[in-house]
C-alpha cells in the first residue's frame, strides 16, 4: 500500500515537473484542427527544444520573409512530417522546377532515382529508409532543422577560409559516407574544389579587367559589362550546383564553357572600347589619361 502511494506520489511529482516545464500531453484533440506558427512553437519548444533552437538559428528563420513551421509542414498536424520531407515543398520556394538550384538536382542521378522510386515520405530521413537522398535528406540531415548548417552551399564567389572549408566539407562528407566509400567522396570533393577554383579564376580575370575598364568604358558600355558579369555570377553558381548536386550538365554546359563565353565577351568589349579611344586619341591627343597610363612603349609587342 505504502509502495503504491509512493508510486502515485512519484507520478504526481513527474506530472507537476512536466507541467512546470510547460509540457502538454499530446492527445488526439490537441493535434486536431489547424495551427499557427506560434501554436507550433508553444507546444514544440518544450517538447523538442533542440529542433526549435536549430530552426531559430537557421537561414530559414533569419530570412527576411521568414520560413516558419507552417510554411513547410502546413497548418494541419496530419501528414505534417511527410509534407515537409518532400522535395516539392522545398522547390516551391527555391525557384520551381526550372531554377538551377532545383533542376541541377532533378537531373542528377539522385534526383532521377528519387523520382522513379517514389520513396515513402512518412519515414524519417535515415539511410535505412531512402535509397537516394532528396533535398531534406542532405540539407536537413537526420531532421536537423538548422537548414543549411550541415550540407550547404559554400560561397561560390570567393574562397572560403581554409578552416571553415574543412568544417563544412567534413559535415558534408559524413552524410555522403552513409552510402558512398570514403575514397570516392574524397576524390569528388577535392576534384570539385579544384573545378570551382578554376571557375573562380575566370571570374577574377573578368573582374580585374572591369576594374581597369571602369575609367575606359562609357556609361552604356559599363552597364552592358555589368550585365555580362551578372551572367558570369550565375554561371559560376551553376558550376557549384553541378558539383554539389553531381550534375555534369551544370558543371559543364551551364558552367565552364558559359564562363569562357562571358570572359571573351568582356575582353572583346574592352578591346573595342580601347580601339575607339585610340582612334579618338589620333584626333584628340589629351583624351583618357587612364588609358594612356596603361600603354607603355613597346608593351604588348613582345609576343
Amino acid at each position: 500500500m505504502g509502495g503504491s502511494l509512493h508510486k502515485v506520489g512519484k507520478l504526481l511529482l513527474a506530472v507537476w515537473l512536466l507541467h512546470a516545464a510547460g509540457y502538454q500531453p499530446v492527445t488526439a484533440a490537441a493535434t486536431d484542427g489547424s495551427f499557427t506558427n506560434d501554436a507550433c512553437i508553444q507546444c514544440h519548444a518544450p517538447r523538442d527544444p533542440g529542433l526549435v533552437d536549430a530552426w531559430r538559428a537557421s537561414a530559414h528563420a533569419r530570412a527576411e520573409s521568414r520560413v516558419d513551421c507552417v510554411a513547410c509542414h502546413g497548418e494541419s498536424h496530419t501528414d505534417a512530417g511527410p509534407r515537409a520531407r518532400r522535395d516539392a515543398t522545398c522547390s516551391a520556394c527555391h525557384g520551381g522546377p526550372t531554377a538551377p538550384v532545383v533542376h541541377s538536382y532533378t537531373t542528377s542521378k539522385h534526383g532521377i532515382l528519387l523520382r522513379l522510386e517514389k520513396p515513402d515520405w512518412t519515414q524519417p530521413l535515415a539511410v535505412a529508409n531512402y535509397r537516394v537522398p532528396g533535398c531534406a535528406y542532405c540539407h536537413m540531415h537526420a531532421g536537423n532543422h538548422a537548414a543549411g548548417a550541415g550540407v550547404r552551399d559554400w560561397n561560390p564567389l570567393e574562397d572560403t577560409a581554409p578552416g571553415e572549408q574543412d568544417r563544412i566539407q567534413e559535415t558534408m562528407r559524413a552524410v555522403c559516407r552513409e552510402c558512398h566509400s570514403p575514397r570516392y567522396i574524397n576524390s569528388l570533393f577535392s576534384n570539385g574544389e579544384r573545378m570551382l577554383s578554376v571557375a573562380r579564376m575566370k571570374m577574377r580575370e573578368a573582374d580585374a579587367l572591369l576594374e581597369q575598364a571602369g575609367a575606359e568604358f562609357s556609361a552604356d558600355e559599363l552597364i552592358s559589362a555589368r550585365v555580362q558579369m551578372e551572367h558570369m555570377q550565375q554561371h559560376l553558381k551553376n558550376v557549384l550546383l553541378g558539383i554539389g548536386h553531381q550534375s555534369p550538365d551544370y558543371q559543364w554546359w551551364h558552367g565552364q564553357p558559359a564562363l569562357d563565353g562571358d570572359l571573351l565577351r568582356i575582353k572583346a568589349a574592352l578591346a573595342e572600347s580601347r580601339r575607339r579611344h585610340s582612334d579618338r586619341k589620333n584626333t584628340e591627343p589629351t583624351h583618357a589619361p587612364v588609358f594612356k597610363q596603361r600603354i607603355e612603349p613597346g608593351e604588348g609587342e613582345t609576343q
Binding site: M201, K202, E205, K267, A271, R275, S278, G300, Q303
Partner: peptide, 22 residues
C-alpha cells in the same frame, strides 16, 4: 578599313589574365 588588327594594349588583354595564364 580604318585600322587593321588589335591595338598593342588589346593584344596583352587577350593573352594574359589569371585563368588564361593558369
Amino acid at each position: 578599313e580604318e585600322e587593321q588588327g588589335e591595338t598593342a594594349a588589346s593584344a596583352e588583354l587577350w593573352r594574359s589574365g589569371e585563368y588564361t595564364d593558369f
